[in-house]
Each structure stands twice: as C-alpha cells, then as structure tokens.
Amino acid sequence: MEIIDLIKKNFGSNVKDVKVVNERRIYIEIPPAYIREASEFLFNDLKFRFSIASGIDEVDCMEILYHFSFDKEGTFITLKVKLDKKNPEIDTISDIITGAKWIEREMHELLGIGFRGNNDLRNLLLSPDYKGKKYPLRKDV
C-alpha cells in the first residue's frame, strides 16, 4: 500500500475522496482541473500503464473514470472526475498519453464530452457523416 500513500501525498488537497475496495482496487476522486497533473504523475513518474477510460452519464453529472494499472504490483487505480452535465468538458490527456487518443474520440462521439486541447475529435466508431447532437451512450437516448 506504499504506492497509494505516495499518490495521496503527491496529490495533496486535490484528493476529494478515496475508496479502497481492496489492495488491488482503488478509486480516487479528483477535481477535473487536476487531471493533467495527476495523469502525468501516474504515467510518467510512477510508470503506471493507462488501461482505458470509462465515461458514465450519471443523473446529475457526467463522470469519467481514468483507469491506470500498476502492473508490477497488480494495483488498479481509477481516477474519478465529475463534469458539469450541461457542458461536459475536460482537458485532454492525449498529448501526455498517446494511447488515450482513441478513447477521447470515442467518449466525445458517444457521450458528447469535450476534450480541451485535443484537435482530433473525429468520430471513431460512428460514421464520419454522423454529426447529430444525440449521443448514443447518454441515458436520455
């Protein structure tokens, strides 16, 4: 559990909530504005692997879970951010982690989440012609 203490210390007051399900499953909620610094620390400094991100349409907000894996110890850390439902937008991490490019495109087309700084948000899975405002993975669709 040393790794989680190290993360908590580095994140400091940016840790809004920590849920330790067991030593291999840890969820940390952070403010959206802190996502770039947090990802940089996990990916570049601690050498975590970016596994994927899950976007979730909650009733009162839009959530993104960034899943990072520390394969050496089998620890799976999930960073949770909550975005405004009306205008869900967050800074991109795709310039820090190349492997996040596709999933940002996917969350953009399926959930309507904007990624500031990512200038390639073309449709990934949906047709390139689809420019509708209905986002398939939202609960109101």
């Binding site: 596994s51 994927i52 899950s54 979730i56 349409d57 492997g99 490019k101 596709w102 999933i103």
Partner: peptide
C-alpha cells in the same frame, strides 16, 4: 453502465 475494452483497441492504434 458496462464498459468494455478489447485488447485490439490499444494494439491496432
């Protein structure tokens, strides 16, 4: 919510 990520999503890129 059920999120699925297949390995090829990372590998093909």
């Amino acid at each position: 919510r059920h999120k699925v990520r297949a390995p090829s999503f990372m590998n093909v890129f």
